[in-house]
């Protein structure tokens, strides 16, 4: 998908979330769904399979998100799936989150860790990152077992890697 189309989708999602008055909630839910989709080849393959009727794919989305996400988030994901843009869903969501946060004057930090950060830890990390970057930072935590331990933060073009995985890779490269 072209950057223009991703941007267009992101702009539309920002407008929709603002109209619904649930921007932060939609951001969080879409972000989590996008990361979950990235981690499941089977789910991604099923939702992207043109051989599966669109109604069936939308039903899968509703079954997955029902009770776990709001109606706005479910509708947005269903729209993207129905339009056959599952392959670009992560990019659309990342762009949406970045634009939405940018609209509030914030930066978005994607924080990967082997175990979920508590709300308190996310708050303190957001404060540390805010102090470091000089602008408000919204933390989006992604549980990623490949990290093994520690945390990896991607904020803009900056990568703050404190993962055990990277330490092990450095140890291996030192041989």
């Amino acid at each position: 998908m072209s950057d223009t189309r991703i941007t267009a989708y992101a702009d539309a999602l920002v407008a929709l979330a603002r109209a619904e008055g649930a921007t932060s909630e939609v951001e969080d839910e879409l972000f989590r769904f996008a990361r979950a989709l990235e981690g499941s080849d089977e789910l991604r393959g099923t939702l992207a399979d043109a051989g599966v009727p669109a109604a069936r794919r939308i039903q899968i989305v509703e079954d997955l998100l029902g009770g776990r996400a709001g109606a706005t988030t479910t509708s947005i994901v269903s729209l993207i799936v129905a339009n056959g843009r599952v392959g670009e869903l992560s990019q659309i969501v990342d762009e949406f989150v970045a634009r939405s946060a940018g609209g509030r004057g914030e930066a978005v930090a994607e924080v990967r860790s082997a175990v979920a950060l508590s709300d308190e830890q996310q708050r303190r990390l957001a404060e540390a990152l805010t102090s470091r970057t000089g602008r408000p930072v919204t933390v989006r935590n992604v549980v990623d077992p490949t990290v093994l331990g520690g945390v990896v933060t991607q904020i803009g073009d900056t990568l703050l890697d404190g993962s055990v995985r990277t330490r092990l890779n450095q140890l291996r490269d030192a041989f």
Partner: peptide
């Protein structure tokens, strides 16, 4: 894991 996370947060805060 919690110790590693706390250490990371402290390090990010200390590097400001």
């Amino acid at each position: 894991q919690q110790s590693l996370i706390e250490s990371y947060i402290a390090q990010v805060g200390a590097n400001n």
